[in-house]
Write a protein that binds this DNA or RNA. Structure first.
Lengths: 244, 244
DNA sequence: ATAATAGTGTCTCTCAGACAGTATGTG
DNA sequence: CACATACTGTCTGAGAGACACTATTAT
């Protein structure tokens, strides 16, 4: 850090916290977005977020903004810092440095409009435009939020390999099949049922027995054993993603 | 991102870029630090870094500050964003958000004092105090830089597993033994020579033949084949770290 | 009975780790 | 020659992937 400086001489920056809140809905990886009501990018979709307050920690700001803009307060699941985006010009109005967070949650309750009275909606990520041109019924993202979303998804795909965070996408208790659907939705590949089960159960601390079986579904089939999250923070060995 | 706001109402933050520049010297993982000349933390050691300028990208600021404070310009090697640290009170003078970068370089030329006229020195990381109390001949870090350094080392250890970035710590051309010394220094464990070689050479794109052999050392022994960095950005399969 | 979902057994191939042996240089 | 460093061959065990088989429910 620079040594001597006059505190009045630093260039003033605005600092925001933006959140990429991911969930798995109907077998598809999905993200919570809010629609902008004013320019710039009026009508475009954006990641929830906003200014960090004077005496507020960065993660604290992320959780507060998520609650204010989407009505999601005290969310379950997982939230971690992703990366910081600060290229000059990324906001046309002023110099903004955004600290992005990525979160995982089970089945989000459909958000009601928050304080900012913007529409909040959960989008299937494959319906969010990542290039310049949006097709019909696709969300187009404001600012550099497409890049942030892409980075978040990549991070998420990696994290499922070496951490037990797939469990953050499901409610407890869950079945091995529930967990497999998470992996399939996030990675976008089918996974072999029997091998997946053996792998999860042989990885220490991934899941623990819950002690009951699931009520059998309407379409029949053997009732599944239920599990809860285990105590491991890292998976040894890792869940390897099939290489294409 | 928040929708409507008055640009004059955002709380002003100072944004800095701090750099954890790592190298391997005499078989030990080492870090470049500068000694502070003024309060707060006068006499303590700190990561090089400083304010991001008004129209400067974050990584650009990191490279500039590194050059100004340590005389290292146009460094070879690798630089990537690590994480952002912004807890209120981490700098006693004002609210500062620091975007930290981590870099890897071969054998740094011993830095001369930079523009800021601070002493710059490369420390063996095991001689840097991570707790509250420093022993004799240990560097004590200013601000929350001990936490940043710890995070950087952890990230580096992970990155060596699944990327070919160990090659960023050596000059080209290098021998397999050079590369093995990097892994041993960063991970702090001995690695089996024959198995390490077979693993590196069987991982596509990790290294390429350079076409010559190294001059034999003064202590004898068969001359080693030389290699350069390969084209892979990720290692498949990964170099697994022994699990204690 | 059939369909559907849950769960097991077993074979093969890859790869990590242990370790012995060979190759080529120095003194 | 001894010694040092570079490199290779081969065995073993863990684990991933393919796939067939069994178990328990609904209709």
């Amino acid at each position: 850090m620079a040594d001597g400086y006059d505190p009045s001489e630093f260039p003033p920056f605005a600092v925001t916290a933006d959140i990429v809140m991911l969930t798995v809905r109907n077998g598809a990886l999905s993200v919570l977005l809010v629609q902008r009501g004013i320019d710039p990018y009026k009508g475009f979709w954006a990641l929830p977020g906003g200014f960090v307050k004077e005496n507020e920690d960065l993660e604290e700001a992320a959780r507060r903004e998520l609650g204010e803009e989407t009505g999601l307060a005290g969310l379950p699941g997982h939230l971690e810092q992703l990366r910081t985006y600060g290229t000059p010009g990324r906001d046309p109005r002023m110099r903004v440095v955004s600290v992005a967070y990525v979160g995982f949650a089970p089945n989000l309750p459909l958000p009601v409009g928050g304080d900012d009275a913007d529409a909040a909606r959960i989008w299937n990520v494959s319906d969010v435009a990542v290039g310049k041109r949006a097709k019909r019924d696709q969300a187009t993202l404001a600012f550099d939020h497409a890049k942030i979303l892409t980075d978040a998804i990549e991070r998420t795909r990696d994290k499922l390999e070496y951490t037990p965070l797939a469990t953050a996408f499901v409610d407890e208790p869950f079945t091995i099949a529930d967990l497999r659907r998470v992996y399939q939705s996030v990675w976008g590949v089918p996974l072999h049922e029997g091998n997946f089960r053996r792998k999860v159960l042989s990885t220490p601390g991934f899941v623990e027995e819950y002690g009951e079986v699931a009520p059998s579904g309407s379409s029949g089939g053997r009732p599944a054993v239920l599990y809860r999250r285990g105590s491991a923070e890292l998976l040894h060995p890792a869940m390897l993603r099939p290489n294409d």
